[in-house]
Design a protein around this nucleic acid. Structure first.
Lengths: 342, 342
DNA sequence: ATTAGCACTCAACAGGATAGAGTGCTAACA
DNA sequence: TGTTAGCACTCTATCCTGTTGAGTGCTAAT
């Protein structure tokens, strides 16, 4: 893989990303000043094909990068691209908004990300914090229903409405609420779990209603709050990609994207620190095999909280997408930190 | 519009709905036993075309129903279709689930509806109840943030997280919370608004923090909580409809469906009691002009709360869709009633 | 090692012929 | 007077064919 081959591969990727047409030797020798003729390029391209970095859709067509080619490109050739002032501005405007809660911020961030990249954006937000319990409160709604709100010291809020088999007076609920607050304050979520289940429910085993209620609490609120919420935006952008002119491909893609589980798995593979890129077949999911996913984590106080990703066709503008993704994610980390800890 | 014309129109709609191909005179005389030859049918069809109920895509093709034709069909010809035992079963399974909150129920209902119909389903849930205030509670999250929960006597829950410019001690917040509860209990939401703004904030004008807080409360929680939440499901189903083979139409449709405002407006037009059907150009929205919307309301204790709708191509199975929609909506009303009032 | 030249390949496009579905009209029929 | 068989006509969809042009691989000359 000498210097010239790299340049040629680079040129092929660049050209194909913008035109979506197979790239010929003549195009390269003309548009990208390598100082050699198309015949020379042809020989090099022949080598590149043999090495598996590029491929021909059919004999005597131009070349397009293979998954392996894109992989080499993002690993070795790609350089970062600056955001335009315009783009910077848009990000700035979004993140200077006041008085938004977590959900709104994430929603808006997701929207912005898909708008800036023209691809599909994904954000995962964990449902449960691994911080310690700061506050628990039960709020009566009717005799048979109440709301639980749990706030962790990291500022995460978890709430849910529960039904009761038997009525509980608001008064009594308030007592229980205060009791729980005293008992559970400062414990981490695993401890909350076990404390609720073992100690408290045992100690109160003669109070039928209370025991049932704690079991409910654990099962419904704490247990079921594992996993992540999925935010997805800009699926329509895929309609503008020529590779999805084909209705069958489109349907396969959309079907996969409708499954939260699948979307999650795209961002949750084995991964190294920082920004990850998963290309084409590497995703090994029905319908996503013509797509690439760029993902990174957002953090609060240096601690990884959730993930952000951009999904586009393998023929996507990696350098641009990476820059935007990283910038937006930094801003998201920053604002969440500001909001949750103040 | 004699009896035979009606039968023929009925046959054309039926056939076109299932095949998506223009219907010829021969098809009708063979498949639908009218006892007359294709030539007679041809004469009748010629009349029907003149009356505007059907149209020809091009000379010497079969006929397809026009918007006006569908309108006549749904108004005069359509008969209700029974749900299959299988479908009944699916509905039953969903609505016998325990311990779900409003959001989950609506989400699941929306999913079920799109699955049963194979079209796109829409549900609107109002953000604010017009009942009276049953409970208001402020829950501290940090010194600068707290959560407001408002419960109405109809069981609607409204919650939001607010930021404060100055810190407020949990203790103090609790006092305010109790004060508000006493002061606002039993008032309807407009009264809550005015009471908060005028009386209380005036009375406490020397308490800077409290005054600011009430203004926040009104603006952020009560004012911004007008409008509806939109649930949408099964957009992919549209990909299976031959009329959306055309990518341009598809893009127009998807773009419109991405706007919550537009989706809302589909269910919010002037409408009569019960089930409404809006056909093709009647929707007068970019991208929705090849679609029909069937919508109805769900109620709690006989009082209209929100809307449920099914969106499909104008060539949709109206009778089936209406039956499913009405059945599912009934069940939804029923379960919400059960949950919210007990 | 590079390049000009040339024969070869193949998708894309355009034009033309053909088939078939469906119509409208007319004349015969009950 | 309503119905029907027959027939000419229309128009799309499909298939086939030839042509064009982009791009390649190979060879021989530089």
């Amino acid at each position: 893989m000498d210097e010239r081959k790299k340049q040629i591969l680079h040129a092929i990727v660049n050209d194909y990303v913008t035109t979506a047409e197979p790239v010929g030797s003549r195009t390269i020798s003309k548009k990208y000043g390598l100082g050699v003729s198309s015949a020379t390029i042809r020989n090099e391209m022949s080598d590149l094909e043999e090495l598996g970095y590029i491929e021909q859709p059919y004999t005597s067509a131009g070349r397009i990068p293979s998954d392996k080619g894109y992989r080499y490109y993002v690993d070795c050739l790609m350089e970062k691209e600056q955001l335009t002032p315009m783009e910077m501005k848009q990000v700035e405007v979004l993140f200077s908004r006041k008085n938004a809660d977590l959900e709104q911020i994430v929603q808006a961030t997701c929207h912005l990300l898909s708008q800036l990249t023209n691809y599909t954006s994904i954000i995962l937000v964990p449902k449960r914090s691994d911080g310690s319990l700061e506050r628990i409160q039960l709020i009566p709604i009717s005799l048979y229903r109440f709301m639980v709100v749990i706030v962790s010291d990291t500022g995460f809020i978890n709430q849910r409405v529960l039904d009761l088999p038997h009525p509980i007076e608001p008064q009594r609920l308030q007592e229980i609420s205060e009791f729980l607050q005293k008992k559970l304050f400062g414990l981490n979520m695993e401890q909350v779990n076990s404390t609720l289940l073992e100690e408290i429910s045992h100690q109160f085993s003669n109070h039928g209603d209370f025991k049932n209620l704690t079991i409910e609490l654990v099962e419904q609120v704490l247990m079921k709050s594992t996993g992540d919420r999925v935010f997805l935006n800009g699926i329509i952008n895929m309609l503008n990609q020529p590779e999805f002119r084909d209705l069958e491909k489109l349907k396969a893609l959309f079907t996969s994207l409708e499954e939260d589980q699948i979307v999650k798995s795209l961002l949750k593979k084995e991964r190294k620190e920082g920004t990850n890129i998963s290309i084409g077949e590497e995703n090994s999911i029905q319908g996503i095999n013509h797509c690439s996913v760029i993902s990174t984590d957002y953090k609060i106080n240096g601690k990884t909280v959730g993930s952000v990703g951009v999904l586009g066709p393998t023929r996507m503008n990696y350098s641009k997408a990476v820059s935007i993704l990283e910038h937006v994610t930094d801003q998201l980390s920053w604002i969440l930190e500001k909001i949750l800890k103040k």
